[in-house]
């Protein structure tokens, strides 16, 4: 698939934003100025951007404990996400969600669900709702490789399939469930093979190539919008950092690490742009600078935002 100049530059910009947002948070976390814990998605930017780039805010997304890339790509505002990381009242969840529950329903991003596979049944319900309300909206449901071993996975895949729901299950297979390698817990090479057991198309995709992801996304979205039912996409990818804070990845094979770190989704995208004359080094530099500036501005916004009053904890238990 050929992308237009405008689209590929825009996708690169989003990926660059996600990478640098996460890197910035990583350093601020180490500096100790940010509360909580972090599960970062460096290395998986092409999955988020490729899947979500063509959706509207009326389409939905469910995310996981590693939601930053998904949320930024779905259109949650950078300022409100950063403020949430700083536990401020201007955060996208008013300081009540935190890193693992970021989201903004006004752009179709449900609060991220940080229980493994816990978002899958919810995505079935969102798909059911889109169908019953007679919209042509779709829901992209992100999950990890580990989620495919949960009972909720089975129940959700089956239900989405029998009811032909507009759900796109996107398994970001980054080879590890926390520290456990996929080969220890799954007997088959491709998780996408499991889709056949539900009568659902399953496809393996290079998750580090944003255009390949976007191509698969386009087909799945068309299928869902046309009422033809769900699709399961397995995006093969890798996280460039640990599972969560203070994880130096001692469980990873150095050869495997080297091989995957060389397949950097940002580099792949940038090389594609330059090779196909879709942008110049100067153009890329300029948009990178713009992104870095926006991240600094978001940090300032977050730092200068007020903390919620402690008693605010007592509100919003009920709607």
């Amino acid at each position: 698939m050929k992308a237009t100049k405008e689209k590929i530059l825009s996708m690169y910009k989003q990926m660059f934003l996600i990478r640098n947002y996460e890197d910035k948070i990583y350093f601020m976390f180490l500096e100790g100025i940010m509360p909580g814990t972090i599960h970062q998605c460096q290395g998986q930017e092409a999955c988020a951007v490729g899947m979500l780039f063509d959706l509207s805010k009326d389409d939905y997304m469910t995310s996981t404990h590693r939601p930053a890339g998904h949320c930024l790509a779905k259109g949650v505002s950078l300022d409100s996400m950063m403020a949430e990381m700083f536990a401020k009242s201007t955060g996208c969840c008013k300081g009540k969600g935190g890193a693992m529950h970021t989201g903004d329903i006004s752009v179709g991003a449900l609060p991220a669900i940080a229980i493994t596979a816990g978002g899958m049944p919810v995505a079935v319900g969102v798909g059911l709702s889109c169908k019953m309300r007679k919209t042509d909206n779709v829901v992209v449901c992100f999950l990890g490789d580990g989620a495919s071993n949960e009972g909720a996975f089975h129940e959700s895949m089956n239900a989405a399939s029998i009811w032909n729901l507009p759900v796109i299950f996107v398994c970001e297979n980054n080879l590890y469930g926390a520290s456990t390698h996929i080969t220890q817990v799954i007997k088959i090479e491709n998780i996408a093979d499991r889709a056949a057991g539900y009568g659902m198309p399953g496809e393996v995709v290079d998750g580090n190539d944003v255009l390949k992801v976007n191509d698969a996304a386009t087909r799945a979205i068309v299928r869902a919008r046309n009422g033809e039912g769900p699709t399961f996409l397995e995006l093969k990818t890798y996280r460039r950092r640990g599972h969560s804070r203070n994880d130096s990845c001692g469980y990873r094979d150095k050869g495997e690490e080297k091989e995957w770190l060389e397949k950097d989704p940002l580099t792949i995208c940038k090389n594609y742009i330059l090779k196909n004359n879709l942008g110049t080094v100067e153009e890329i530099d300029s948009l990178e600078k713009e992104v870095l500036k926006s991240i600094e501005a978001a940090v300032e916004y977050a730092k200068s935002s007020p903390s919620p009053a402690p008693e605010e904890a007592l509100n919003n238990v009920f709607y």
Partner: peptide, 22 residues
């Protein structure tokens, strides 16, 4: 809507549908 015997899905689908207008 008659469902499969899938209690996790029934409850989760109710949550997802309720959050999005049903």
């Amino acid at each position: 809507l008659d469902t499969p015997i899938s209690e996790i899905m029934i409850a989760g689908a109710a949550v997802g549908a309720a959050m999005t207008g049903m």
